[in-house]
């Protein structure tokens, strides 16, 4: 009964997000995010039909769709990068380099799992591959968050909602997948409830924070060329360092 309630609540909230996105003009601003929600919405309905009509094939359909979700979810991370840094080309450039490094470091691991799976594919292998893919997304999201913090990038209410919701969802997903991989069926029932509960919480956050379109964040006027800024900062840091070195008697 509780599972059915969570399921239906999820479908209602996904529908509400899509409806409000359409009314508030959010599709143009966050096309990849709303595509993701649209896909998840369609999948929720499909899975509901499958469990009612052919419960035996539910697990296969679920894992196949989950796999598609993981890849489309990468688009949400891309969207956060695109929208969050579009007014800040300097920080965006740094993010591009950092993301490339993170992707090349972690994607290797994913291919390794996929290669293992090509020999003998199992549900556990799917869980492992999904966990690895989520790990790539987390690494990318962490990189972006650190850049946002270091460069004091202002984020609009809508973007903050997507960032927070997707971050929580990813964090709980990877914890669940890790525990399922380690303890198998013993924790599956609990993990499933935790995951569903978190998902409903995340959908609620998105519904509230994406209800209306938030005003755009103001961008700064460039304070000169990068070389000028760098020289100015270096000289100021150098002066401070000289004082400290003097005090140290160096």
């Amino acid at each position: 009964m509780a599972a059915l309630f969570i399921w239906l609540a999820g479908i209602v909230l996904e529908g509400a997000i899509l409806y409000r996105g359409w009314r508030a003009g959010g599709y143009a601003k966050f096309p990849l995010f709303y595509s993701y929600i649209g896909l998840v919405f369609a999948q929720s309905i499909l899975l509901y039909v499958v469990i009612r009509s052919r419960p035996a094939s539910y697990a296969d359909v679920y894992w196949a769709l989950e796999f598609v979700d993981v890849f489309v979810g990468c688009g949400v991370v891309l969207e956060i990068y695109r929208v969050g840094l579009q007014e800040f080309p300097g920080a965006a450039r740094l993010a591009r380099n950092a993301l490339l490094l993170v992707f090349s470091l972690t994607v290797g691991r994913v291919f390794l799992t996929a290669q293992e799976g090509s020999r003998k594919w199992s549900t556990m292998m799917t869980i492992q591959l999904e966990r690895d893919m989520r790990f790539v997304e987390i690494a990318a999201l962490l990189t972006l968050l650190v850049l946002f913090l270091c460069y004091a990038i202002p984020t609009s209410r809508n973007l903050r909602g997507i960032l927070f919701g997707y971050g929580v969802f990813l964090g709980v997903s990877i914890l669940n997948l890790t525990l399922m991989r380690r303890f198998g069926a013993d924790v599956q029932a609990v993990a499933s409830y935790v995951q569903s509960g978190t998902y409903i919480f995340v959908l609620a956050v998105w519904t509230v924070l994406l209800w209306s379109r938030s005003p755009e964040t103001a961008s700064d006027v460039p304070a000169g060329t990068y070389q000028e800024i760098l020289e100015q900062t270096s000289s100021r840091l150098g002066r401070t360092k000289a004082f400290v070195r003097d005090a140290l008697g160096l």
Binding site: F88, N97, L237
Partner: peptide, 24 residues
């Protein structure tokens, strides 16, 4: 504060250099 001010000034610079940021 100097580094924070630098980050605020350089985040919009089109020609930001990764090496420069690492040196800093």
């Amino acid at each position: 504060r100097i580094v924070r001010e630098h980050a605020q000034a350089s985040r919009t610079a089109q020609d930001l250099q990764v090496l420069g940021e690492l040196q800093l």
